[in-house]
Design a binder for these strands. Structure first.
Length: 878
DNA sequence: GTTTTCACG
DNA sequence: ACGTACGTGAAAACC
């Protein structure tokens, strides 16, 4: 067997990866998609070929020899986008870390280096693979050199291979002849002019017959196609020049020797550190073999002896701070890990005399005897803690979230990397291969290692996180808002909300009937059965089989979204049935069936309210999502009727009225907007009056509704395109609305401009309470991304401030309910709405508490208004 | 696992 | 020329 040499065309593959992989950044805002794609291709190739040698060639960005001769043809290539450009040096660093040889040569293109090395490799008796996205290189294919062209589609990389036979099959010419084909047809991306008038087809025909441009020119008179014949005769000089340009130089003075390119020790510490920095989570498992060596581990102990544990914990009263991790298995305590000093970390598993109950007891002992206990998520730990925790628990997850709300997780490994400047193995590394081999999840060494790293990092992170919060002006936000809130949320989750399972079932049955009827009607009109909820099949039927007007919209085919169908509805009653079908199936699957699965034995749903998810500071709701229960249609609202207060209670529902617009009025200090609120005007009507320049009492319904859309648009970070879409008007008209709006509210205009400018300067936007949202998109060279960043800069302070205010209100409502010894409890929060399950004799007090605390949560230049209602189900109360 | 759609604020 | 309104989560279809 011949040894293998793999040669990679660096820029070409990076470029392919950049355009083939959707744009993304790590949490620092560095674009990493091209690097990710490159590595995927690299690892795939290495997996397949297991080469002995590997080398990556890059272009130097200087005029190359071949192009130097014909400078006038340079310059049509587009400049590299900054998102890609910034990845080039990082890619080279990454390769260096992987111990992969890279090479570049001033004055020559990567092609030439690859050509030279592939020839040399073949001569040394190696089997050579050249990896490039560029078909130019096909000319290099020989018996022992194959060209491999990776294609990234839909996240998967597939590689097309070309040896001599395959080139011949696909292009009907030999690799050498391929140069001549190119000389005739040209290549605009490579600045090869070719012969005007001869395209791919003509070039292939000529060369497959005559073998070369020279021979073809000699026999030019025999060429049958008149246009091609004349073109070749007239422009033979162009063809010759193009051939020079297209020919890869296979004898350039490369500095590297193939023997320098031995592939070894790729998966080392440095490379792992970079992969982690880039946050390529899926690649970390490739480094399994090295992840075992670690410096802290020696300080981690497993403590199974009852006496030892007792002894250890008896010292606890001296402790200032503790890092604590509760290890759960099926919701039961399986062990705990505590870190009590830099080199004392203990994992205590449940075994023998050490029972779950015992550990829970000790846990409470620790909390009451330590000055400060650092945990990752207070809310999820609270069910094991019965002792008073006031000001004792530090929540590293929440702190890390405030410092960067854009991350998807705030695990110990993220925290170590971001705030402690060291790397620790992540879950996937410790439990390597658990997807294939479940036993690794049971392995005590893995379990203790995981638990220990958790408590160790939690222990170490208190000061760095607090210091950072302090420096960034968010310590109050953390202490006064987020931490108290997490207790309020814990209570809400524990309380849950009662849902009538029987009524929900009936509702589901009713929907099922309706679905059946609609289905039959739809199949009848379509002429056959199909998956109505498949956009692909539906698009095919609507726009091809039935010939409805409307073109493509999505990457994959026709758009069949509601706003497209809505426009077709008046002319085609059929699509109305589709829309109904969509609505009814949605209600059934997501709500009727979906919610039923979450009703617990107490007849209540205990959903989760997540505090570290959103970019703006809102809370989110999952398992199930209780913040998107239908309200806009009558049939949807039926769902709300099954949400009921328990026996002896009613619901009291309190709603902020237009909180975001009021915040805008406050933050912009716009005179007209503030006055409108002060005079208690209908804000949309008032806006319409100003924007359309009509007296207040002459504002039409349509004008009001348009003004309402503009008001929404302002809060979202207005764009004429967005507004035009929403109102189904032209962009020009939308533009005029916006202009007129800004004339009416010049303060708002100034505020929004300032918000964008300030965010550009600082890199983040800020709410009234100091909450930050980083906006890396503002630095993008991509128009679309940058525009997105600008809209975010306008929206985030407003949406975020509203979230802050609601959080303050919740804390105070919760506190007031307790202080007044009421049994009534908050059960839901839906961004600007609070739902309280109120005992009947507490209703008046509850109403008062809600209104007072919500109104007084912030002192703005315009008053916050709260609407409060009472009902026997959520629908009635809202 | 990704894409599309749609429910809410 | 580009191609979107801001913030979420869940289900079905498809690959």
């Amino acid at each position: 067997m011949r040894d293998k040499l793999v040669l990679i065309d660096g820029h070409s593959i990076l470029n392919r990866a950049f355009y083939g992989v959707p744009d993304f950044t790590n949490s620092e805002g560095t674009h990493t998609n091209a690097i990710f794609g490159f590595l995927n291709i690299l690892f795939k190739i290495i997996d397949e070929e297991n080469p002995k040698y590997l080398c990556v060639a890059f272009d130097v960005h200087q005029p190359t020899f071949r192009h130097e001769m014909y400078k006038e043809y340079k310059g049509t290539r587009k400049p590299m986008l900054p998102e890609l450009k910034q990845q080039v040096p990082l890619m080279k660093e990454m390769l260096k870390a992987l111990n992969i040889k890279t090479t570049e040569l001033a004055g020559f293109e990567a092609d030439d280096i690859l050509g030279t090395l592939s020839k040399a490799g073949e001569e040394q008796g190696l089997e050579v693979s050249v990896i490039s996205g560029d078909r130019d290189l096909l000319q290099l294919a020989t018996e022992h050199v194959k060209i491999r062209i990776p294609k990234t589609k839909k996240g998967k990389t597939e590689i097309e291979d070309y040896n001599v036979t395959q080139v011949l099959e696909k292009y009907s010419v030999t690799p050498k002849e391929f140069i001549d084909v190119k000389a005739l047809m040209g290549d605009s991306s490579d600045n090869i002019p070719g012969v005007p008038g001869i395209g791919e087809k003509g070039a292939t025909t000529i060369i497959s017959e005559y073998g070369s441009i020279e021979n073809a020119f000699e026999h030019a008179d025999d060429i049958k196609n008149k246009r091609n014949r004349e073109a070749l005769k007239e422009h033979f000089d162009m063809a010759q020049m193009s051939k020079t340009l297209a020919t890869i130089n296979t004898s350039v003075p490369v500095e590297v020797k193939i023997s320098d390119c031995v592939l070894e020790d790729m998966f080392n510490k440095e490379a792992l550190a970079m992969v982690k920095k880039f946050e390529f989570k899926s690649m970390i498992s490739k480094f399994d073999s090295i992840s075992t060596e670690n410096t802290f581990e020696e300080n981690f102990k497993i403590m199974e002896d009852f006496g030892e544990v007792e002894n250890l914990l008896s010292e606890i009263q001296k402790l200032k701070k503790v890092g604590l991790f509760i290890d759960l298995n099926n919701d039961e305590i399986r062990g705990i890990s505590i870190t009590i000093s830099d080199d004392e970390t203990y994992y205590i598993p449940v075994s023998g005399f050490i029972t779950g109950e015992y550990l829970k007891e000790k846990l409470n002992y620790i909390v009451s005897n330590a000055v400060e206990v650092s945990v990752n998520d207070i809310k999820s730990n609270l069910r094991f803690v019965e002792t008073e925790t006031e000001n004792k628990l530090f929540d590293a997850g929440i702190a890390a979230y405030l410092l960067n709300p854009l991350k998807s997780t705030y695990e110990y490994d993220d925290i170590a990397r971001d705030y402690l400047e060291f790397e620790v193995p992540a879950y996937d590394e410790i439990f390597a291969n658990y997807k294939k081999d479940k036993s690794v999840l049971e392995n005590i060494d893995n379990i203790s290692k995981y638990a220990s790293y958790n408590s160790y990092v939690l222990y170490k992170s208190i000061e760095p996180l607090k210091e950072k919060l302090e420096n960034e002006g968010m310590i109050d936000l953390y202490e006064k808002i987020e931490v108290p809130l997490t207790y309020a949320l814990y209570d809400m989750e524990k309380t849950g909300i009662k849902v009538e399972a029987d009524s929900l079932k009936e509702y589901g049955d009713k929907l099922a009937e309706s679905i059946k009827t609609l289905e039959e009607e739809i199949y009848k009109e379509a002429g056959h059965e199909f998956k109505i909820n498949s956009p692909k099949q539906l698009g095919e039927i609507l726009f091809n089989e039935m010939g409805l007007p409307g073109g493509k919209k999505t990457k994959t085919g026709y758009s069949t979204s509601a706003d497209v169908l809505e426009k077709l509805k008046p002319d085609y009653p059929f699509v109305e049935k589709i829309l109904s079908y969509r609505q009814v199936t949605k209600l059934k699957s997501t709500y009727a069936d979906g919610l039923a699965g979450f009703i617990e034995e107490d007849g209540r749903i205990h959903g989760k309210f997540n505090q570290t998810i959103t970019a703006t500071g809102r809370i989110s709701s999952t398992d199930p999502n209780l913040q998107n229960i239908p309200v806009r249609t009558a049939l949807g609202r039926e769902v709300r009727k099954v949400f009921v207060p328990k026996e002896g209670c009613v619901f009291v529902d309190a709603d902020y009225s237009q909180i975001e617009l009021r915040i805008l009025a406050h933050m912009s200090d716009d005179e007209n907007l503030i006055n409108a609120y002060k005079e208690a005007k209908d804000i949309h009507q008032s806006t319409a009056s100003l924007v359309f320049n009509v007296p207040l009492d002459e504002v039409t319904k349509e004008q009001r509704s348009n003004a309402k859309a503009v008001n929404f648009g302002i809060v979202y970070g207005i764009s004429s395109f967005g507004l035009s879409q929403d109102l189904s008007i032209s962009r020009k008209e939308a533009d005029k609305y916006i202009k007129d709006y800004f004339v009416s509210y010049p303060g708002v205009k100034k505020y929004l401009d300032d918000a964008v400018e300030s965010a550009k300067e600082k890199g983040y936007s800020v709410t009234l309470f100091g909450r930050r949202r980083p906006i890396p998109e503002l630095k993008s060279g991509n128009f679309m991304q940058k525009s997105f960043g600008e809209r975010v800069a306008m929206n985030a302070p407003i949406q975020g401030t509203a979230a802050d205010i609601m959080k303050i209100a919740m804390i105070n409502v919760d506190k007031a309910l307790k202080e007044q010894n009421l049994k009534s409890k908050i059960v839901l929060q839906v961004h600007d709405e609070l739902l309280v399950e109120a005992y009947k004799d507490e209703v008046e007090q509850v109403k008062q508490i809600l209104v007072d605390n919500m109104k007084n949560a912030a002192d703005l230049r315009v008053a916050l208004e709260v609407e409060v209602e009472v009902g026997n189900n959520w629908n009635e109360a809202h």
